[in-house]
Each structure stands twice: as C-alpha cells, then as structure tokens.
Computed example of a mutant assay.
Amino acid sequence: MENMNAPAWRKSSRCGTSTCVEVAKVDENYLIRDSKNPEAAALAFTKAEWEAFVEGVNAGEFRF
C-alpha cells in the first residue's frame, strides 16, 4: 500500500532524463532532495525561506 503521508515530489520539466533536484511541499514547509539519491535526507525550508530563494532565482542572483 502506498504511504498516504509521503511527500509528492516534483522535478523541473527542464530536467528531462538528467539528474535534478526535486521539491515537495509538506504543510507550510518545502523539502528539496537529490533525485539520484532519493533515500538521503531532504533539506527543509520554511515558506519564507523558499519564497526568498524563488525571488532570488527570478532576479538572476544565482547566475554565474
């Protein structure tokens, strides 16, 4: 039987078949994990932390 409390992990549509990070929302928190190692511990972020990260991505703060 599938675990009803398991996070619903999402992967970017830009990943294709390559390895990516995955994101899941659980209550008011966001979890991030490595898709090639899904059994490892996920990083957890609050809603405010996640929103600051997304804002930074959209502003181009992570472009090298």
Rank of each mutant, 00 (worst) to 15 (best):
M1D: 09
M1K: 11
N3F: 11
M4E: 13
A6V: 08
A6H: 09
A6L: 07
A6N: 08
P7S: 01
P7Q: 00
P7V: 00
A8K: 14
W9V: 05
R10C: 06
R10T: 10
R10I: 08
S12V: 00
S12M: 03
S13V: 06
S13H: 01
S13C: 06
R14Y: 15
R14C: 11
C15H: 01
C15F: 01
C15D: 03
C15N: 01
C15Q: 03
C15W: 00
G16M: 06
G16K: 06
G16F: 01
T17F: 13
S18C: 12
S18V: 08
T19Y: 14
T19M: 14
C20H: 01
C20E: 00
C20L: 03
V21N: 00
V21A: 04
E22D: 09
E22M: 10
E22V: 11
E22T: 05
V23F: 02
A24R: 04
A24F: 03
A24P: 02
K25R: 09
D27H: 07
E28A: 13
E28W: 01
E28F: 05
E28G: 08
N29P: 02
N29W: 04
Y30F: 12
I32A: 05
I32D: 01
I32Q: 03
I32H: 00
D34K: 13
D34N: 15
S35Q: 02
K36P: 04
K36I: 04
N37Q: 11
N37V: 06
P38G: 06
P38N: 07
E39G: 15
A41V: 13
A41L: 10
A42N: 07
A42K: 06
A42P: 02
A42H: 09
A42Y: 07
L43I: 10
A44I: 11
A44V: 12
T46W: 03
K47M: 09
K47F: 03
K47Q: 12
K47P: 03
A48L: 11
E49Y: 02
E49G: 10
W50E: 04
W50F: 10
E51T: 12
E51K: 13
A52Q: 13
A52P: 05
A52R: 13
F53P: 07
F53K: 08
V54K: 13
V54P: 08
V54A: 12
V54M: 09
E55D: 15
E55V: 14
G56E: 04
V57S: 01
V57C: 10
V57H: 06
N58V: 12
N58R: 15
N58I: 10
G60I: 05
E61F: 13
E61A: 15
F62L: 15
R63P: 09
R63S: 14
R63L: 15
